[in-house]
Write a protein that binds this DNA or RNA. Structure first.
Lengths: 312, 312
DNA sequence: CGAATTGATACTTTCTAGGCATCGAACAAG
DNA sequence: CTTGTTCGATGCCTAGAAAGTATCAATTCG
């Protein structure tokens, strides 16, 4: 059921009426508006017809607002004010000075690259608000094509079609184990030394590729760990390790602020590698200046801590 | 310094764009708006030019909002919604179903006619809000021509030019005196019996005519009272009488709810008369339907308690 | 590779805002 | 009371803009 254009008046009518209401004088109002007085009279009369209520009492010697006119003025003043600021607002949005970017990240990102990026970005683009949500890799890979997030910091398994990514970090995982664990006294470990110790890991669905790569690394070392618990976010795994539920993987960068009851030990020989990238929909940075600004800051920080070459 | 019309766009542009943003489809949006598709494309393009920012990304197969477009939608949705309700709102204001009336009154009015009027008016016109302020007669006579109040309940001394009035009440004043006063045992009093007893009265500036008429009445009775205190609002005079500061005038109607420590006694012979009228600017009831509705209710109540004829 | 769909463009028609001239009413000055 | 001035409204004409029709270019899908 097509419905016709719903307004029988437009902004011109409202602006003209506002000026008449301010001056209560058609001739002077017309002068201010740079139109002839008859045009103004007609527009106001049209507005009254469109609204179905008289707005002014004209006695050819005095113009006064009716109650309806008073009510109209009160309602359109804020509307006109907000509309008059629109072009400036939208231009600043379009130029990236103002806006918002929805960003997802994993625990590793927040433990490493993200804090300095955020600090720098807020300093350079104070008008842009970031919406930050911790989210597993798999969820980010779903949310990115949907446009639910503008960019994500995650750990890809294979190239994702339609996404552009930039590697920010590559690190070999080490092991986090309780301080009173038999192996805790060692400087470093080998995977096979862990035997079939109980493991705390993230849910496989959150990053199946990396999950399977971890199991494959164990398998190549000839051992099969018992997965005791699957927990997320990653920070909670530390709590489980501390309470003796098992051991877990972690990157060196992420292990800075471990509680005293647990220790981090690097792995010698084969070890699963974590790769942190920032990813966004290909081409979306062209349409979203705020995102582009954010990615530029990310790129600047990626350049600083460029990681050495290595296998995927 | 004449300034040109400030908007390079109008409501049509905004409504058209809103529909495209909702459907993300020019053809269907055009159908909904009951216009041809080229017209819609042009209007949206014009809006983008007027705002100086691209609002949509068109890939001939997919239409998406840019950040600026998203920001625009968020800002204009409430504006369009409020504007679309304007005709209905203004018609109800113009018809008197919705509105406000500023009313001033004196203590006598609130003690007598006003409560039933207010009850009745709110029942019949629930959409009209009354702004009620107690105010002396003189202040009301200043505020009425200014339009600061729409109508007032006061005690006129002489006809006021430009005002229409309707008499609501005529009453001979009596005397309020402490219960332990020597004259309190009498059924009624004469003015001259009060001699030069201390009096509590309202400030002369609040109603010079009535004030002088009171003094003249004393003078005709051959006595001259001492004005000990001038106090306002009237209700406070009762407190002063109670504490023995003097005696005061009051209308019988107003004396209903006196505290037990004071008594009311009518006056025999000469006594100042209080006349309560409702007044409004001549002709203003024609322009203000809410006021007209209020005055109709007042008139209905005035008819009920029509006072008998008597001297002004 | 052809058919269909989408949004943009060219051209014409229709509508409307604006300007000019003028009118009737109301107030002011004499 | 008369005359002149000022105010907003009205009639007529022109110019500009919006809408409709027809068509194009690009993309998608079978």
């Amino acid at each position: 059921m097509p419905r016709k254009y719903q307004f029988a008046f437009d902004l011109r009518h409202l602006v003209y009426f506002r000026e008449v209401a301010r001056q209560l004088h058609f001739r002077r109002a017309a002068e201010t508006l740079a139109v002839a007085q008859p045009a103004l009279s007609r527009q106001v009369a049209q507005l009254e017809a469109a609204l179905g209520a008289p707005l002014l009492t004209r006695t050819s010697r005095r113009v006064e607002l009716t109650p309806a006119g008073q009510a109209l003025i009160e309602r359109i003043e804020p509307v006109l004010d907000s509309l008059s600021g629109l072009p400036a607002v939208l231009r600043s949005v379009a130029s990236g000075q103002v806006g918002q970017v929805r960003v997802a990240f994993t625990g590793l990102a927040m433990a490493t690259v993200l804090p300095p990026i955020l600090r720098d970005f807020h300093r350079r683009h104070p008008g842009v608000r970031l919406q930050l949500n911790e989210s597993p890799t798999a969820a980010q890979l779903e949310a990115l094509p949907e446009g639910e997030i503008a960019c994500g910091f995650f750990h890809p398994d294979k190239p994702a079609p339609g996404l552009k990514t930039r590697v920010l970090l590559r690190e070999r995982n080490g092991i986090v184990l309780p301080a009173d664990h038999p192996l805790a006294s060692r400087e470093s470990l080998r995977l096979r030394e862990l035997g079939n110790a109980p493991f705390v890991l993230f849910p496989r669905s959150h990053n199946p590729g990396f999950y399977d790569r971890i199991l494959a690394a164990f398998s190549r070392s000839g051992v099969a760990p018992r997965i005791e618990e699957e927990v997320w976010p990653r920070a909670n795994a530390i709590g489980l390790v501390r309470s003796g539920m098992g051991v877990t993987f972690m990157c060196p960068s992420e292990s800075r602020q471990l509680p005293p009851e647990v220790v981090f030990r690097p792995l010698r020989g084969p070890a699963p590698e974590s790769r942190l990238v920032v990813g966004w929909r290909a081409g979306s940075e062209a349409a979203d200046p705020a995102l582009r600004a954010f990615l530029e800051v990310v790129a600047a920080h990626a350049g600083v801590r460029a990681a050495g070459p290595g296998p995927g």
